[in-house]
Design a protein around this nucleic acid. Sequence first.
DNA 1: GTCTATACACCGATAGAC
DNA 2: GTCTATCGGTGTATAGAC
Lengths: 187, 187
Amino acid sequence: MDTRERLIASTRELLWERGYVGTSPKAIQERSGAGQGSMYHHFRGKPDLALAAISRSAEELRGRAEAEFSGPGTTVERISAYLRRERDALKGCPVGRLTQDPDVMADPDLRRPIEETFAWLTDRLAGLLAEGRANGELDTGLNPASTATALVAVLQGGYVLARAADSVDVYALAMDGALGLLTAHVR
Amino acid sequence: MDTRERLIASTRELLWERGYVGTSPKAIQERSGAGQGSMYHHFRGKPDLALAAISRSAEELRGRAEAEFSGPGTTVERISAYLRRERDALKGCPVGRLTQDPDVMADPDLRRPIEETFAWLTDRLAGLLAEGRANGELDTGLNPASTATALVAVLQGGYVLARAADSVDVYALAMDGALGLLTAHVR
DNA sequence: GTCTATACACCGATAGAC
DNA sequence: GTCTATCGGTGTATAGAC
């Protein structure tokens, strides 16, 4: 990995662990092994580097989700696989955690990848639910848009509860609850 | 409000808006109108003040939730009232947002009120669901513990999605989805 | 109780040598 | 491309006068 990539990788880790305000150029330099001058040669400053890091994380998240969504099985099985996928629940969501960072949300450039990721995710899930409803797998009474939003929310909230309880089991419990509720709509 | 209370109130606001790392003693002093010496007279330092602020916020959250839980109506109506209560969804949860703060979670004293609040909340909701199941209001197949966890998660995640989309409507949509799923279990 | 002065490390960046 | 030097501002206090 070249210096530029190491800088991005280290920034992604630090943003995940400590958020934007909690991440200093100095910490990024130390973790990446790059010097001061090196960092400012490759990036114009902290926001520029953060943009590269956030975009990369958002891209990766979508890629992994898409793999699950377009995998084998019924729509409910694919949604279940996505929700139950092994996650580092105590670390939280590398994209979702940034919504709590006022300096990120105040910068349209930094905000965009986050907004787009959740819009895409909710939309993709709504599509799967609509597909399941259309092919008779799911109840006709189920609303794809609101249900999809609730499912993404339960995922993000599961991270919050797991961190609060310091237990990955709480994340799994939240997914059990959500899927238990959804299953009642399976014909 | 005396100086001590103003310091706590300002710290609560700042922790809500900017988190622990994003909140400086200087900012607290400016917002509260208290001077440097005044702040360090009433509190030993930032962690001490944060503990007072977090405890207060946690207490208030429980009080408001309990008002909804012990209010009128069926168990599902009370849960619905709680989830749909008017909230400043774009500001996020004053307690839940702190789970993203590594310095808060690393300090057992600061962490405790957060952990306790979510444990209480989930437990209280599970009790309501169990009650609804026992009195025939809800499906016997519904698992109170996992469902309660999912409901608290959807609430916390609703805040995340609302901030990501910069829209309170997304929060409401998540609640619609969750209640839509729950309603299928109402006999 | 509140004020001002002081301290020292870190933040985020720029300049210029190599 | 990377290094070191330097910069003004902030973070988080402590000390001591009033």
